[in-house]
Amino acid sequence: KFNKERVIAIGEIMRLPNLNSLQVVAFINSLRDDPSQSANLLAEAKKLNDAQAP
């Protein structure tokens, strides 16, 4: 279950337009470290993406 959620979360994070490459890598590394947190990490990535919108 967590592996599928992690793959989906990674794909979504990679498509967030307002994150820089270091932020994307940090979120992906966090997902690798704890796949059970996929939903929480994706939500945090989306919040950061929205906050950094031009």
Score class of each variant (00 low, 15 high):
48 L>Y: 04
17 P>E: 06
38 S>L: 11
5 E>L: 10
47 K>W: 09
2 F>W: 08
30 S>D: 05
11 G>M: 14
24 V>Q: 06
17 P>G: 06
18 N>H: 13
22 L>T: 13
52 Q>H: 04
10 I>Q: 11
49 N>F: 02
37 Q>A: 13
20 N>L: 11
37 Q>K: 13
9 A>T: 07
27 F>V: 02
18 N>F: 09
37 Q>I: 08
34 D>L: 05
40 N>I: 12
14 M>L: 12
36 S>M: 08
50 D>K: 09
21 S>D: 08
29 N>M: 14
36 S>W: 06
35 P>V: 07
28 I>G: 01
37 Q>N: 09
40 N>W: 13
21 S>A: 12
6 R>F: 15
10 I>A: 06
24 V>F: 03
51 A>G: 05
53 A>S: 11
3 N>C: 15
24 V>T: 05
22 L>G: 11
34 D>C: 11
40 N>A: 05
36 S>Q: 07
51 A>T: 09
43 A>V: 08
13 I>K: 00
5 E>V: 05
26 A>I: 12
19 L>G: 01
2 F>P: 14
44 E>N: 09
42 L>N: 01
49 N>M: 02
39 A>Y: 11
35 P>E: 05
4 K>W: 10
41 L>R: 06
52 Q>A: 07
34 D>T: 07
39 A>R: 10
7 V>Q: 14
13 I>M: 03
39 A>Q: 08
27 F>R: 00
18 N>S: 03
19 L>T: 00
8 I>G: 03
12 E>C: 08
53 A>H: 07
15 R>P: 01
52 Q>P: 02
5 E>R: 03
3 N>F: 07
13 I>H: 01
37 Q>R: 13
5 E>W: 05
43 A>L: 10
16 L>P: 00
13 I>C: 03
42 L>C: 03
35 P>Y: 10
18 N>V: 01
47 K>F: 09
40 N>F: 14
33 D>Y: 10
21 S>M: 09
30 S>W: 10
21 S>H: 08
46 K>Q: 04
28 I>H: 02
36 S>F: 09
32 R>Y: 14
30 S>T: 10
39 A>H: 11
20 N>A: 07
20 N>M: 03
16 L>F: 05
4 K>F: 03
22 L>F: 10
48 L>D: 02
50 D>L: 11
54 P>G: 11
23 Q>T: 02
31 L>G: 01
51 A>N: 07
36 S>Y: 09
45 A>N: 00
24 V>I: 13
15 R>G: 07
6 R>E: 15
51 A>R: 11
5 E>I: 06
44 E>Q: 14
42 L>T: 05
47 K>G: 06
33 D>S: 08
22 L>Q: 14
10 I>Y: 04
18 N>E: 01
3 N>E: 15
34 D>G: 04
32 R>G: 11
17 P>V: 10
53 A>F: 08
12 E>K: 13
29 N>T: 07
21 S>Y: 12
52 Q>N: 12
43 A>M: 10
5 E>S: 04
14 M>H: 04
3 N>I: 06
28 I>P: 00
28 I>D: 01
11 G>K: 13
47 K>A: 10
6 R>W: 15
36 S>I: 06
49 N>I: 02
19 L>P: 00
9 A>L: 11
25 V>W: 14
2 F>E: 15
19 L>N: 01
4 K>C: 14
51 A>L: 10
13 I>N: 00
44 E>Y: 10
33 D>C: 08
9 A>H: 03
18 N>P: 00
28 I>C: 05
27 F>P: 00
4 K>E: 15
39 A>M: 14
23 Q>C: 03
35 P>I: 08
33 D>A: 13
45 A>P: 00
7 V>M: 13
40 N>Q: 13
19 L>A: 01
25 V>Q: 14
48 L>T: 02
30 S>L: 14
10 I>C: 08
39 A>N: 13
18 N>Q: 02
45 A>G: 01
46 K>P: 01
34 D>Q: 08
6 R>A: 15
22 L>N: 05
19 L>H: 00
50 D>Y: 06
27 F>K: 00
38 S>P: 04
27 F>C: 01
49 N>Y: 00
2 F>I: 11
44 E>D: 03
43 A>G: 06
54 P>F: 11
40 N>M: 09
19 L>K: 00
42 L>A: 03
25 V>G: 09
11 G>Q: 14
25 V>D: 08
53 A>Y: 07
5 E>K: 04
28 I>Q: 03
23 Q>E: 02
34 D>V: 05
26 A>Q: 13
11 G>N: 14
12 E>A: 13
5 E>Y: 09
8 I>A: 08
8 I>S: 03
35 P>F: 10
51 A>F: 11
48 L>Q: 05
54 P>R: 06
47 K>C: 07
53 A>K: 11
54 P>Y: 08
26 A>T: 09
16 L>E: 00
50 D>Q: 12
17 P>N: 06
29 N>V: 10
4 K>I: 11
3 N>D: 15
30 S>N: 09
24 V>C: 04
33 D>K: 11
28 I>R: 02
37 Q>H: 08
24 V>S: 03
31 L>Q: 01
4 K>D: 15
39 A>I: 12
10 I>K: 04
30 S>K: 09
53 A>T: 12
20 N>W: 06
52 Q>T: 04
47 K>H: 09
22 L>M: 13
39 A>F: 13
31 L>P: 00
6 R>Q: 15
46 K>T: 06
25 V>E: 10
2 F>Q: 08
5 E>M: 06
16 L>N: 01
25 V>H: 13
13 I>D: 00
2 F>Y: 14
18 N>T: 01
30 S>G: 03
17 P>A: 08
53 A>E: 08
7 V>S: 06
17 P>M: 06
28 I>W: 05
53 A>Q: 09
7 V>Y: 15
11 G>F: 11
13 I>F: 02
15 R>A: 11
2 F>G: 08
15 R>S: 12
46 K>S: 04
7 V>W: 15
44 E>L: 04
9 A>Y: 09
39 A>C: 11
7 V>T: 08
1 K>T: 12
19 L>D: 00
3 N>M: 04
5 E>P: 03
25 V>P: 01
2 F>A: 11
34 D>N: 11
9 A>I: 07
9 A>C: 05
15 R>D: 05
17 P>Y: 05
42 L>P: 00
12 E>S: 07
43 A>N: 10
20 N>F: 10
25 V>Y: 12
26 A>H: 12
52 Q>W: 04
32 R>W: 15
44 E>A: 12
4 K>V: 06
16 L>S: 01
41 L>V: 14
3 N>Y: 07
50 D>C: 06
7 V>C: 14
5 E>T: 04
9 A>K: 04
33 D>I: 13
9 A>F: 15
2 F>N: 14
28 I>L: 13
6 R>Y: 15
50 D>R: 08
33 D>Q: 09
47 K>E: 11
31 L>K: 00
30 S>I: 14
47 K>V: 08
42 L>R: 04
14 M>C: 11
4 K>Y: 10
8 I>N: 06
15 R>I: 06
22 L>K: 11
17 P>Q: 07
42 L>Q: 03
47 K>N: 08
8 I>K: 13
51 A>D: 06
26 A>R: 10
23 Q>Y: 02
41 L>F: 08
19 L>M: 02
35 P>L: 09
53 A>C: 05
10 I>F: 03
7 V>G: 07
25 V>T: 14
15 R>K: 14
29 N>G: 05
30 S>E: 07
2 F>M: 06
32 R>F: 15
23 Q>G: 00
6 R>P: 15
24 V>N: 01
7 V>E: 15
12 E>H: 07
47 K>D: 07
27 F>A: 02
1 K>A: 14
32 R>A: 06
29 N>R: 06
8 I>T: 05
48 L>E: 02
4 K>M: 04
